[in-house]
């Protein structure tokens, strides 16, 4: 009795698995691609300036480099609507809990760009008493943009890399 049922459900599961594969192939992949494609050209960065690298963000958002043409706005609005956190440089001991708070408040899916030597390893300030040596201890990072400060072009390249990553994201959730 029990064995028969198991056999039956086993066959059923195989069937379900097959259908799933077919559906995945026919609908899932295009859906995932479509959803991620939609996300990738409408990135909303949080306006959280952490240190001097923000000057180059200002330049990147300015009229010469114009990051809007890559589909990222110069951020304004609530951080609940944002999906990109650009950490612009040094994160100090005072800012670190706030950075975590900001990250936690953002809705999924969300991505993080670590900009500048400071946010990657502490940079010039490796021996300062008030500076975090790299932000990946507290939040996950998707793209690192090295430099002190990175030129605006370098930042834009980081943005494009992130878009490439989103395009290739293996799941519908964008991660």
């Amino acid at each position: 009795m029990v064995v028969a049922q198991q056999q039956k459900s086993g066959a059923f599961q195989v069937l379900v698995g097959k259908i799933d594969d077919v559906l995945q192939y026919a609908i899932g992949d295009p859906m995932r691609y479509l959803a991620n494609w939609g996300r990738l050209y409408s990135l909303w960065p949080v306006h959280l300036e952490t240190a001097c690298c923000s000057v180059e963000i200002g330049a990147a958002a300015g009229s010469r480099f114009d990051m809007e043409r890559f589909g990222a706005l110069e951020a304004f609005g609530s951080l609940r609507q944002c999906d990109l956190l650009i950490v612009m440089g040094t994160v100090t001991r005072k800012l670190a809990p706030r950075l975590k708070l900001v990250y936690d408040q953002m809705a999924e899916p969300k991505w993080v760009i670590a900009m500048g030597a400071c946010s990657i390893t502490g940079g010039l300030y490796f021996d300062s008493y008030n500076v975090l040596r790299g932000i990946d201890d507290i939040i996950p990072v998707d793209v690192y943009v090295p430099g002190c400060p990175p030129r605006a072009e370098a930042f834009l390249q980081g943005l494009v890399l992130l878009q490439e990553k989103i395009r290739r994201a293996p799941s519908l959730s964008g991660r």
Binding site: R93, K94, D127, S128, Y129, N130, R133
Partner: peptide, 21 residues
């Protein structure tokens, strides 16, 4: 300028040694 929860020596005193040094 220091974080609210700073509880070490005042940093610019000479006997305070910066971590990493």
């Amino acid at each position: 300028f220091l974080p609210e929860d700073w509880n070490e020596l005042p940093p610019l005193r000479k006997d305070y040694v910066s971590p990493g040094r």
